Simulated scan of single mutants.
Amino acid sequence: MAPSFENFQRRRLISSYFSVVLSIFLVLFLLGALGLFVIHSEKISNSFKEDIPMSVYFKDEANDTILKAFETKLKSSAFVKDFVFVSKEDAAKNNKDIVGEDFLEFLGMNPLPNSFDIHLKSEYVESAKIKQIESDIKTNEMVSEVIYDKKLVELANENIKKISFWILVISSVFALISMLLINSSLRLSVYSNRFIIKTMQMVGATKSFIRKPFIWRSIRLGLIGSGLAIIALIALTFYVDGLFPNLGIAKDYLSMFIILGGVLAVGIVITWISTFFATQRFLNLRTDDLY
C-alpha cells in the first residue's frame, strides 16, 4: 500500500509541476509575442505605408533627356524610398501579361505613356505631405498625371493611430491577466502543501526557512517555463521573418534581447512574488483554518 500511495503522490506532484510550467509557458509566450508585435508595430505600419505606390505619367512629348532629368531628381529627393521607370514598351508588355491579349495588334500604336512608379518613405505618406509632393511633381510641364490612392493614405494614417492605441490597452490588460494566471497556478501548487507548511511551523521552523524551498522550486519552474517560451518566441520570430523579410525582425537583436530578457525576468519575478505571498498566507493561518 505504501509504495502505491507514494507513486500516487509522485504522479500528482509531477502533474502539479507540469500544469504550473505549462501555464507559465503559455502565458509568457503570448505575452512575449504581443511584446514583439508592439515593438515592431512601427516597422509594420511603415512597411504598409511604403507599399502604397505613386505613379507619375509623362506626356508623349517627353524625350529621354527629360525622363533622365526627372530620374536624377528622384535619386536626390529625400522623400523617395525607391522607384522604377516603366517605359511605354514595358507597360504594354505588362498589360498583355495581365489581359492575355496584345492590344497593339488591332490599335496599331502604343497609347500607354512612360511613367515612374515611386514608393515614398513612410514619414511622407501623410495627406498633407503627399499632396505637397504631388504639387511639386506637377510643376514639371511634361508630367501629365500623378496617381496614388488618396483614400488608402487617409485610412492608413487614421487606422494605424487607432490600432497603436488599442494595442497598448490590450497589452496592459493581457499583462495583468498573465500575472493573475501564473499567480493562481502557483497558489494551487502551494495549497497542496499547506499541511506540510503548518507541520514545519509547529516543530519550530522559521517562516523564511519554510518559504525558501517553495520559492526556489517555483523559480526553477519559472525558469523552465520561461526557457520554453523563449525557444518558442525565437522560432516564431524566424518564421515571421521568413514571411516578411523586409521588416528585418530577426536581425533586430536589441529588440529580441529586450523581449527575451523581459520574458525571463517576468517568469522569475512573478513566480517569486506569487510563491512568497502564497506561503505567507498559509503560514499566517491557524491550524483549524487549514481544513
Rank of each mutant, 00 (worst) to 15 (best):
A250G: 09
H40V: 00
L31I: 02
I231A: 13
G32D: 03
S178R: 00
P213E: 07
L186S: 01
V153L: 12
L264W: 05
K49F: 09
F209T: 09
G204N: 08
S115E: 02
K138F: 07
A2P: 00
I177K: 06
S192Y: 02
K251C: 06
S218A: 15
L155M: 12
R10Q: 13
K207W: 08
R187V: 00
I231K: 02
I133L: 02
L283G: 07
I268G: 07
K131L: 15
I219S: 05
N246V: 11
E61D: 15
L22R: 06
E158Q: 13
V203F: 09
V173P: 01
I44P: 01
S122E: 06
L28D: 05
D117F: 05
N159A: 07
S41D: 05
S47P: 02
V143L: 04
F165T: 10
V56T: 07
N246R: 13
M256N: 13
L30N: 06
S55E: 15
I52Y: 10
L254H: 10
F83R: 08
F29G: 02
K96D: 03
I268M: 12
P3V: 07
L112P: 01
I66M: 11
V269P: 02
V269M: 14
I39E: 04
V84M: 13
E126L: 04
L152P: 02
S16L: 07
K251T: 11
L188S: 02
Y253K: 11
F277W: 12
I24L: 00
V263H: 03
P113Y: 07
D288I: 08
N110G: 03
A92C: 00
D102K: 04
P245H: 15
E141Y: 09
S55Y: 11
T279A: 15
K43A: 07
Q132A: 15
S178Q: 01
S41R: 05
I197M: 08
R194G: 00
L120N: 05
K93D: 13
S144R: 13
F70E: 12
K121E: 13
L243Y: 10
A175D: 03
V80Q: 10
R217K: 14
N63I: 07
K212G: 10
G267S: 13
I219V: 13
A128D: 15
K131C: 05
F277P: 02
N46D: 14
S45R: 10
I210Y: 01
F116C: 01
L22G: 06
L221S: 07
S184I: 03
T199Q: 14
V153D: 14
I44V: 12
A78W: 09
G35M: 05
V153I: 09
S208T: 07
S15G: 10
S226V: 01
D289Q: 13
I170G: 05
Y291K: 07
Y291S: 12
A69G: 09
M54K: 09
D51L: 15
K93W: 04
K88S: 06
